[in-house]
Design a protein around this nucleic acid. Sequence first.
DNA 1: CTGTTAGCGCGTTCAA
DNA 2: TTGAACGCGCTAACAG
Lengths: 343, 343
Amino acid sequence: MKKSLTIHDIAKLADVSSATVSRVLSNSSYPVSPELRQKILRIAKEYNYVPNMLGKQLKTKTSMTIGVIIPTITNLFYSSIILGVEEIARKNNYQVLLCNSFQDPALEDKYIQAMFEKQVRGLVISSISSDKRQLKHFIDMGLNVVAVDQKMGMDDVSEIDFDYYKGGHQATRHMIGKGHHRIAYVTAPLDRPSRISIHEGYLAAMKEAGLEPLVQEGGIESYSGTYEFENGKLLTRKLLGREGERPTAIFACNDMTAFGVINELSAEGLKVPDDMSVMGFDGIDFGAMMNPPLTSVLQPTYEMGRLACNMLLDMLIDSKKAETGIMLQPKLVERESVADLRG
Amino acid sequence: MKKSLTIHDIAKLADVSSATVSRVLSNSSYPVSPELRQKILRIAKEYNYVPNMLGKQLKTKTSMTIGVIIPTITNLFYSSIILGVEEIARKNNYQVLLCNSFQDPALEDKYIQAMFEKQVRGLVISSISSDKRQLKHFIDMGLNVVAVDQKMGMDDVSEIDFDYYKGGHQATRHMIGKGHHRIAYVTAPLDRPSRISIHEGYLAAMKEAGLEPLVQEGGIESYSGTYEFENGKLLTRKLLGREGERPTAIFACNDMTAFGVINELSAEGLKVPDDMSVMGFDGIDFGAMMNPPLTSVLQPTYEMGRLACNMLLDMLIDSKKAETGIMLQPKLVERESVADLRG
DNA sequence: CTGTTAGCGCGTTCAA
DNA sequence: TTGAACGCGCTAACAG
């Protein structure tokens, strides 16, 4: 194992001072004569010099690293956001420290602390922890935070928001427009802002149309990876077991849940959309691959990631305070899982 | 924005030397009197002391960070590996620097360089770049590498391998055992070890049974996220358009491709498995959610990630050389997409 | 233009 | 048991 050299080693080899080496190798704008510059560059290359960023960062107080905290990377929704974050980070020579919080507030706090210790000064987070004291403290210490997916409602936190309410409303309107009157809403626990907003959008649209809402809410969440799917199946089973007239359409809080709904319907011998219509929420790629292709509300996750990272870098570079925030708009993608009941 | 304090600040407040503070706050085994220890701990807590890891790491030459380079995080196969890596990393107080290489060798090299500069000394990688010189160089400089998914065949690189050959063989045997004779193999470009091995396993099993292989290979790969699905559709279309007798079963190189196959078959009015059987490879969760549930070869991705990270940490801590490597065994999960043609 | 010097925050000898 | 002093690798202020 070879020992890696420092600018001092290079300096000795080139018979100059380490300051000059630093100025050349760090692309400083400080003037250095062309001859020395060439010489230093040549030697650095010859000896495979690799800078030690820890030294540099300790001095300049900037770790070119941003942190990302999301519930779990195996959820396509989040991995897509991360991809967007990373693209922008890469283009600006930043790197991404990834943390899966599994929605565990303690773990979330632990990660934030660890990243702050590593001098990470920028954070993209989807947090559901309600106690923001620790985060607040780090923000006071200079941490910049952009929230995605789940809004935080904190002064110093910028938000890349999505209009979940409008999305829920729009989806419901769509089904009503197709002639559906009995529309059920099937959802994972209403324990966070995004889900609550979709739910409210649904309720509002139903009320406006003078229709009776029918909500089936899931129980405690797990992180088995197939939770949402299983939850969709379970809630559908409950829904079908209910007394009274069956709904003609089921609206699910996200696409994975919708897949579960469809699967259960199929197991019960019900065809989608002939016997029952299904509407998703997310617009993940998989929806287009299902049979039938799932009608859904598109969330521009990749774009959310890009915007979040850009906003964060702006904050880091100009050290300006939280921007006003961005509200992304939903877009309904009509595929084939919702039947037209009119005529 | 408050200024964060250093051990010197704490030292002044406690009226001791910074050395003593360091010994207490870094949990050194060095003896410090209980009184001073308590006093320092109290003050550190009171003033919300946060250590600066850059200083520590510069001194101790260890960044508690490992790097992960995979093609793209939006592929469930890889995100699941990462989750396993991160779990083990977390338990050992390491953090994960994530890089999506998009199978771009130049980007891969750039990331490796950047991580090495940040003093990352451990790397989990799924690489398809053929030029390993740069990596080799960093290994000589002290980088520890564990390869997952794609084997590298380098002396100093440990490998978490999966028996792709056996998997391909096993899957093919399974279909043959169900009475299939005309079995097509549909695959993304055979441009990397894993795919080549599955293909060879298929060929061998067919040959052993005295059957004629029928391979349909895909063209240039993109990273659209739906590439594999589209590729499955395209290849199926080509396959069905061929002259001669149709196969009774299609074996796809991975589950996403299999979903495309099924989708296309369905579009052509062919039912799975009644009119055509389909076999996948991966065993991703989604397979169980499809209709029909996909028979596939299970790869323990999460376990691969865990093993890779454990192996890496062993190398980092004991600085022992590459272990012998681990070969994970395939396991066939029979679901409902392969028909039994016998009697 | 170049070099000397002084830290960044921390851990770790070596003396006391 | 404690503290003074040094250095990890680098940049930046100041002199020359």
